[in-house]
Design a protein around this nucleic acid. Structure first.
Length: 408
RNA sequence: GCACAGGUGGCCGAGCGGUUAAUGGCAGCAGACUGUAAAUCUGCCGCUCCUUGGAGCUACGGAGGUUCGAAUCCUCCCCUGUGCA
């Protein structure tokens, strides 16, 4: 069932124009593959999970901890950073990398997701989106062009086209109209980007110092990724993929998922869309998912994923472990002297008991957020490491809850 | 001792004659969270019983009383705070 689509995709790749980002596939196992994505801030081993750091911070953890955890690339958000501290401030402080002192790769989302998530504070037109700031109520007009300008100013290694994340559920006509709008915006995004991408000085974009892992590259520009929409309609997904590829980007994202649809539907749409995308370029599944989903999608051939779940859930006392979810706030852990996850070697599991973590959470201590976030990110990042390993060995990956089922 | 002000469910605190098992908040318990308006949000939270819905019981310091009806009014008692002796 995969074969036809894959061959189609393989054939199509020759129509893709040259790109400014390097992606080399290293090993494959069925539809899954490991690869190396080269950015101005080092090489990224894929499949990769990208922690979300909306406001130039992955909430709860410092940059040196992120490095220790093995985060290869993190996300920032254009809309939020535009509002605060403002693109000019970030630009003046040597871009996101310099501003937040992060020498590894960064990807910024364009603000397209806010078109969806802030739907009560915004108005969409052909030209762009008017947002009413959630901070002070002021009005801000975003267009594909302004979103690109902002992202060029922020200076992330990978930036995203300005899209409309279609809501769920949506009628066929609405989904198509939304998809068409995203396509027109994708063209405008690319056009503006091509004309202005050299405005990010190479010296600034380039990683500095000896901390850079993998070495700087010759890619002197940012890379702009396109985003496939099309809702839950497989036909529209295909059309969106093909037409987005027609515009031509160095990488493609699958957007508009995890917006409330049933999980099985997400899987179906991802599986279908992957087949329509080029086989030799990075494919980025936006906003997904649980540890199990992240593994599953990696095995389906997704190269990049990001999700708020590990960090947000951590702040809310939900921890992911090899034995399944642990809601550390539960009374049953009050005197549990065991480590959180017996098969995790993160600094949290290594040192603290469940009882202590529960106490910190119950007492509303900020350390609870820090430790919980460290663990969850560690769990995701280690899971990805093991997924990459499995793909390289051509075997089946360890699923996040495998040992739970074995034990109970 | 006298004068005021008070004693409400684990805690704080509304209510001041009926639609009150009793508003709120906290604490407690459980759940949700998927390109971050999220250290957020939702539900439960006197006891017992049956199926949702309900039934019964016990409750507003204590004991009496007024009233068809009292956490709410009256009397006495106990206790707490403040002031004066």
């Amino acid at each position: 069932m995969h074969a036809g689509g894959w061959q189609d995709a393989a054939a199509r790749r020759f129509t893709i124009q040259p790109v400014s980002i390097d992606f080399q596939i290293q090993a494959t196992s069925g539809p899954a593959r490991t690869g190396r994505l080269t950015t101005p801030h080092g090489e990224i081993e894929t499949p990769v999970f990208m922690p979300v750091g909306t406001l130039a911070t992955v909430k709860g953890v410092s940059q040196d901890l992120l490095e220790e955890l093995g985060a290869q690339i993190i996300l920032g958000n254009t809309y939020h950073l535009y509002l605060r501290p403002g693109v000019e401030t970030v630009r003046a402080l040597s871009g996101l990398h310099g501003f937040m002192s992060w020498n590894r790769a960064i990807l910024t989302d364009s603000g397209g997701f806010q078109v969806f998530s802030l739907n009560e504070l915004r108005k969409v037109t052909e030209e762009g989106v008017t947002f009413r700031s959630h901070l002070d109520g002021s009005s801000h007009f975003f267009t594909p062009e302004s979103a690109m300008a902002a992202q060029i100013g922020l200076g992330a290694d990978i930036i995203m086209a300005f899209d409309e994340c279609t809501e769920y559920p949506a009628e066929q006509e609405r989904t198509r109209a939304s998809m068409e709008l995203t396509l027109r915006w994708a063209e405008r995004s690319k056009k503006y980007f091509e004309e202005h991408k050299n405005e990010v000085p190479w010296e600034r974009l380039k990683a500095s110092g000896s901390e850079l892992e993998g070495g700087a590259t010759s890619h002197a520009t940012q890379s702009l990724f396109g985003i496939v929409q099309g809702g839950m309609d497989l036909g529209l997904r295909r059309e969106s993929a093909e037409r987005t590829m027609g515009i031509g980007f160095p990488g493609y994202a699958i957007g508009g998922l995890s917006v409330g649809e049933p999980r099985a539907r997400t899987r179906e749409v991802v599986a279908a869309t992957l087949e329509y995308l080029p086989i030799d370029q990075p494919r980025y599944l936006m906003g997904v998912g649980t540890p199990e989903e992240v593994v599953e999608y990696s095995m389906m051939g997704v190269d990049m994923m990001d999700c708020v779940l590990p960090t947000r859930a951590a702040r809310h006392g939900l921890l992911f472990t090899s034995e399944g979810k642990v809601s550390i706030k539960q009374a049953r852990y009050a005197q549990d002297e065991n480590q959180l996850d017996p098969s995790c070697s993160c600094r949290v599991c290594h040192r603290y008991s469940r009882a202590y973590l529960r106490h910190l959470y119950a007492s509303n201590e900020v350390l609870a957020q820090v430790l919980n976030t460290i663990h969850n990110l560690s769990y995701y990042l280690d899971t990805m490491k093991s997924v990459r390993h499995s793909i390289q060995l051509g075997g089946k990956p360890r699923f996040a809850t495998e040992s739970t089922q074995a034990k109970t």
